[in-house]
Structures are given as C-alpha cells and as structure tokens.
Design a binder for these strands. Sequence first.
DNA 1: TCCATAATTCTAGCAATATAGAAATATGGA
DNA 2: TCCATATTTCTATATTGCTAGAATTATGGA
Lengths: 105, 105
Amino acid sequence: METKTAVRSLAGLAQDSRLSIFRYLVVCGPGGAVVNEIAEEIGLSGSTLSFHLKGLVHAGLAESFSEGRYIRYRANFSAMKGLIDYLTLHCCEGHPERCRPAKAS
Amino acid sequence: METKTAVRSLAGLAQDSRLSIFRYLVVCGPGGAVVNEIAEEIGLSGSTLSFHLKGLVHAGLAESFSEGRYIRYRANFSAMKGLIDYLTLHCCEGHPERCRPAKAS
DNA sequence: TCCATAATTCTAGCAATATAGAAATATGGA
DNA sequence: TCCATATTTCTATATTGCTAGAATTATGGA
C-alpha cells in the first residue's frame, strides 16, 4: 500500500462516527447493511450518515450496492488488511520484534 | 485498546506530515532523533514541526526527552502495536480470515 | 555575562471537517 | 399515476486543523 492510500485510510477511520460505522459494517460481515439499519445503530441524521458513508467509500474502506430502493454498504476487508500490513511494515521497518513481540494471533 | 484511544492514534497518523515524521522516528529506532534532525529530514518550518510533534505525543505515538538544549523524540512502538491489535481485532471480529487470509508475517 | 543555537509558543489566516435541516432524486407499491 | 419510503445533495454554520513568521524560553559555551 502506498503512503498516500494509507493516509486516506487512516483519515477515514480517524473519527468517532466513521469508526463506529465501519466497526458496525465489520460486525455485519460480507452481508453488510442498508443505510437505515446503520442509522438506527449509530444514531446520526441521514445527511450526516450519508456524508460519512461517502467518506468511507472514498477512503476505499467500504463499498456500496444498489438494492432496489435500498443501498447496501459493506466493509472492504482487503483495504483494511492493506492498512494493517502497511502499519506493520512501516512501524517495524527492520525491527519486527518492536511492534509484534508476542505471537501473531 | 479503547476506541477513544484508537481514534486518537488514527488521527495522529492520518496526515502527511505527521505520518512522515512518525515513519522517520520508526526508522531511527529506539534512539530516536532530535528536532533539528527531523526538520532536515521532513522539511517543515520549526513551528509546524513542533506543532505536529506535539500532536504525536498527545496521541501517544511518540515520547520526548530533554537532552541538554536538544529535545529527543522517539516513536512509541507499543502504542503502535496497540493500534495494530485494535484494528486487527475490530476489523475481523469473529472472522479473522477476512483480514489476515495469508500467513501472519 | 553575553551570544548563538535549539525548540516552543503566540498569532493569524486559510482550508477542511462535522453536523443537521430542507430540498431533491429514485424506487416500489397501491 | 400518486404516494410513502430510502437515500442523497444542497446549504449553512461552527469547529477544528495546517501552516509559517515573529516572539519567547532555555541551554551551553566563550
């Protein structure tokens, strides 16, 4: 993962509402959730939620699919994996033991 | 790691200049670097650099130590590990294979 | 003591972000 | 076609973040 992408992913998650949304999508798994469901879970106005969902998609952390008049969002797990790998690599360059002293779980 | 802490860590890294500073500190290892050295590496005005170093410290991602008239900064590797663990856990809740399909490196 | 150097804080301006109400768009069903 | 529902976009506002020049503080050396 490029540094530019990493910054965008980090920024995507670096906010209470967005991290909550993303975490909820993660819990939902590959089935994702439609907007209304997320709104009930997170408790934000529709416009604010839409704003943040757009942010997550733009950051590559979520994807959306039309489903009739519903729109389903789903976490992008591979983007997440990419971010974790980036952090693991660039936090530990040449010194893996510093960041992952315990066994990889 | 608590979610609040995670957001703070993510925000600490979610910016070009700060991520560059942090990555440089990581490369420096436990020896860290003094401010002037970082400034030459990153190329920011003193005040801006100071502003971001404060941000990293506030986010728990770096620590500072007086050294005569120099101030040495060092990456906080365990905070980084905490963040990676948080992301690994909450990105994969109940579905570890989704985010770490390959072997843990 | 006086000066040069290291770093921070102060100040100010500009850009970006977060929020929500209102209006607009789109879909499915009666 | 008309309406209710789902979601987004528009608009506006308040807050926060990024940047750097100038002033300030602190240290070590001559």
